[in-house]
């Protein structure tokens, strides 16, 4: 089975960049003071007041829905040595109001996937390949290129695969001294990276921790830890 892919799978980012942030945290303290990841007037980025569990009145992840706010943040980020850009989002607000006996903390959950894929040396197409009985070796889905084996005497052949990794020409094997084959590689293994963020709230009540996670697709999962 072959599936054509974009080898840089994180919405067009290169492997060296941070993933796009779609939500920001907001924390409401017991006295009503509010802390937000980005200053709403200047776009300046703030550190979380406390990365650990502590009492809050409420905690939330809020999607970026204001284009001017997004522009403000990204203009500031562009001036930093390690910029982290944000983008507009239609994700829902994740808001938890805490009881008197509950503590909470907010954080990003980063996920970085690395996966090999094949790249066609003939036409540049990138694709994933899963071995199947009907397709025992990879073939470019666009131009049909595949890796082939070559005998110096008989040209392109389908070799005999020996357990020790040796490939022999089947014609030489029948007619005379055994002879090895050379691989003509047209498909090359590469590694793709996918980066994404999920947005997490953990609420602690006694020994029980409940975790709320919203991912980039808007799916919310709730787990007891």
């Amino acid at each position: 089975m072959r599936t054509t892919i974009n080898p840089v799978m994180d919405e067009g980012l290169s492997t060296m960049e941070a993933p796009i942030t779609l939500m920001y945290w907001a924390l409401e303290d017991l006295d009503g003071t509010t802390y937000v990841l980005y200053d709403l007037a200047t776009g300046e980025q703030h550190k979380v007041p406390d990365p650990n569990f502590r009492r809050w009145k409420s905690v939330a992840w809020i999607p970026f829905t204001d284009a001017s706010f997004v522009d403000l943040i990204n203009e500031r980020q562009a001036q930093l040595p390690n910029p982290s850009y944000v983008d507009l989002s239609t994700l829902p607000v994740l808001h938890v109001k805490l009881r008197d006996d509950e503590e909470a903390r907010v954080f990003f959950r980063g996920k970085i996937e690395y996966s090999d894929f094949y790249e066609c040396g003939e036409c540049g197409t990138a694709f994933l390949w899963m071995r199947e009985d009907t397709e025992p070796y990879p073939v470019c889905p666009k131009c049909g290129a595949c890796n082939t084996w070559f005998c110096d005497i008989h040209g392109e052949v389908t070799p005999i695969f020996l357990q020790n990794g040796e490939r022999r020409c089947p014609i030489c094997e029948k007619q005379g001294p055994p002879r090895g084959c050379s691989l003509i590689r047209r498909l090359f293994l590469r590694t793709a990276v996918r980066k994404e963020l999920a947005y997490c709230i953990q609420v602690k009540r006694g020994d029980i921790i409940t975790e709320y996670v919203i991912n980039k697709d808007g799916i919310v999962t709730v787990n007891s830890l």
Binding site: T15, E17, A18, S84, V193
Partner: peptide, 8 residues
Amino acid sequence: MAATVNVE
């Protein structure tokens, strides 16, 4: 903000 994280 999100850090730039890579696999090495």
